[in-house]
């Protein structure tokens, strides 16, 4: 039997959970809600993270546009995704939700603007 201690990061409660695997059967304990269940299993099989960063904007005052991955990317790819983000330069205006990078590095995840700057 395999066992992992996982702290849930889905919400600010931060439940301390135990994930166990026996005969391909994953069990989670210590979670206070259903989302912890999903997170616990995912964290030990295929951990992913939402990335937030900025991209360069060609504007004297608004020099950076905040962006976010819409959905989580594999944790191991965080620095590669950052490299892609660091290549971009934008012109204003940009609206919240505008696509900045589609399907980043084949993850199926889009990177979008997280605010509006007109």
């Amino acid at each position: 039997m395999k066992e992992w201690d996982v702290v849930c990061i889905v919400c600010p409660k931060g439940c301390r959970m135990k994930v166990t695997e026996e005969n391909n059967d994953m069990k989670v304990s210590g979670n206070q809600c259903k989302r912890g269940l999903t997170y616990g299993v995912k964290e030990v099989t295929n951990p992913t993270r939402v990335i937030t960063s900025t991209v360069k904007v060609n504007h004297p005052i608004h020099r950076r546009m905040p962006v976010v991955t819409k959905g989580a990317v594999p944790k191991g790819m965080m620095l590669d995704v950052m490299k892609e983000i660091n290549l971009i330069e934008l012109e204003l205006p940009i609206m919240v939700g505008d696509m900045i990078i589609g399907d980043v590095l084949g993850t199926g995840i889009n990177i979008v603007a997280s605010r509006t700057i007109k």
Binding site: T54, V55, K56, R64, K83, N86, L87, E89
Partner: peptide, 17 residues
């Protein structure tokens, strides 16, 4: 300063990244 500048981007492209 964060983010690649134009020169760094050129270099990266030259390296084929």
């Amino acid at each position: 300063e964060t983010k690649f500048n134009q020169e760094q981007i050129k270099e990266l492209k030259a390296k084929g990244e």
